[in-house]
Design a protein around this nucleic acid. Sequence first.
DNA 1: CTGTTAGCGCTTTCAC
DNA 2: GTGAAAGCGCTAACAG
Lengths: 336, 336
Amino acid sequence: MPRKSDLEPLSAKSATLHDVARAAGVSLITASRALTNPKLVSEKTIARVQAAVQATGYIPNLLAGSLKSNRSRLVGGLVPALSVAQFLPTLQSLTDVLDGAGYQLMLGQMRYDDSRQDALLNAMIGRRVDGIVVTGLIRSEAARRQLVRLGTPVIETWDLTDRPLDIVVGFSHIKVGSALAGYLLGKGYGRIGIATGDDHRAQLRREGFLATVGHNVPTAVVPAPSSLALGRSALGELLRQDPALRAVACSADQLAQGVIVEAQARGLRVPDDLAVCGFGNADFAAHIVPSLTTVHVDGASIGRLAGELIIARCSGETIRERVIDVGFEIVQRQSA
Amino acid sequence: MPRKSDLEPLSAKSATLHDVARAAGVSLITASRALTNPKLVSEKTIARVQAAVQATGYIPNLLAGSLKSNRSRLVGGLVPALSVAQFLPTLQSLTDVLDGAGYQLMLGQMRYDDSRQDALLNAMIGRRVDGIVVTGLIRSEAARRQLVRLGTPVIETWDLTDRPLDIVVGFSHIKVGSALAGYLLGKGYGRIGIATGDDHRAQLRREGFLATVGHNVPTAVVPAPSSLALGRSALGELLRQDPALRAVACSADQLAQGVIVEAQARGLRVPDDLAVCGFGNADFAAHIVPSLTTVHVDGASIGRLAGELIIARCSGETIRERVIDVGFEIVQRQSA
DNA sequence: CTGTTAGCGCTTTCAC
DNA sequence: GTGAAAGCGCTAACAG
């Protein structure tokens, strides 16, 4: 294989449109049009240009095109952390939609830290992304003002608000908490506990839960990201607070699975001795034993909608609905 | 909040370096240096430029800088799919390292499809990424030639080869399979089955396994991505092939967990009636009951190394080792 | 249908 | 320390 013998930094100049044009015997702009807007060019010319592309191994420099046209076909995506399984379907379908339209995703991890969110936002704005998709809302006022001023399409997701920065696609965490509390109370479970992550949205669900229950309940707060191991220790903590606990509502299916494992290890039957419900409807929820009662949120739809909205805005379309509620659904299974 | 009343595409021109220079009363280039190479500029000037940046809300256009300097501070990352939990720690630590050095990650999903790999590669080369990190090896000869010609640093990961395109950071799947077979045989398990994903690397592990066992064994092949549900059905399939099966080696911890759940649902005790081992050492592996014997691979290290190597190459450093074997480790727990 | 001209916003190169 | 000029590779706007 023809390669410089050692691994020094290389700098093989790659062919430019200029080279292609010369090889095809046409002007620069004709070559450009043959590749990006073939309707304006005769078939013969197109064929010659394409042959020249092959011959020279030309790959367009999208940086240059973006600079001129002010459209980068890049979309920024911000998640708290890749390790939060919750957001993976959203990211996956977002990438798929963008990809199909020739857009690329730039990924950033915020780590539940507002200052990192600002820094990432600047890195993305600096690269002139055509839009930004963020999980949760954009918290910093400075960042909000900046984005509004620039007119960058921004899709906030996985939450809901009356005053989105631009567009929000999500659901109400307060309502989720409230619905879950109603469900458990309706089943007649008296002594309920909460195992919850310490992130903003989990806390909103907890608020909604408590508001419906009407009084405080035993609570174990665990750091993000949620995991089976944290669920196990959370149940220990909750049983210390109330040894006669009858039900546990968890802020993530991973926690719920841990609670179930720990309950079984302690000889408690689920749901007879202890009912458990989760949040997220992870892929394993339906298949563990007992199967997990949980809250389903269509994360893939959120990602798809976000991608489509960004693309629509970039194509100059006007969007009517600025607040899109995708709702949620309690999935009743064996564990509660 | 001052915003155009409806959601039409906006195009607020943002401040350029030109505006900053004028506001600071210096020349364009001095403003540029004050921001990117402050040693060359007096402190007074720096202060004035920075004030001007604040006043104008300037955010550098990295596209323009990249075009001129031919360095985008963008790194392309290719994974089979985001839903493969396996690669998340790699992606996470890669992003962290890049981020700390001012680089951004462009993400692409290959979907175990070589033609998509080629298309994504082109999209990334077109955006003049400074380097590419790919899970697995780059298969297409055309793509390999192209990348070599361009001199783009490429880190292939999660596999090993004598002839990497550029640099490879990973481990030998054949050896993993072989080690696992040795382990199970050493424990005296006679009738062993395999539950495996259909991807290339899982198949390599299977080959290594069979080579050490010395004969064919019952096998259930499931489509990617591996999940608990697929593990449950795989055990059903394996027991049909051999009702007296005593051990199952799985190509992913998610599958292994499914095999355990299914075994328990059928009244089989793990490991007494059926031994199970996984691959990946997922976060739950140590905490399920029984805890899961599996193969640990340091995915985070792979990502960190890949990031550091890319950055080193971009800084003009020469790299000696082109093949980096991070190894693996069998983690013995209760399930086998 | 094809071509010429003029930049996009920045950094490199050379001059003072 | 600072500045003027040139140009990265491409596309928008206007001509022929």
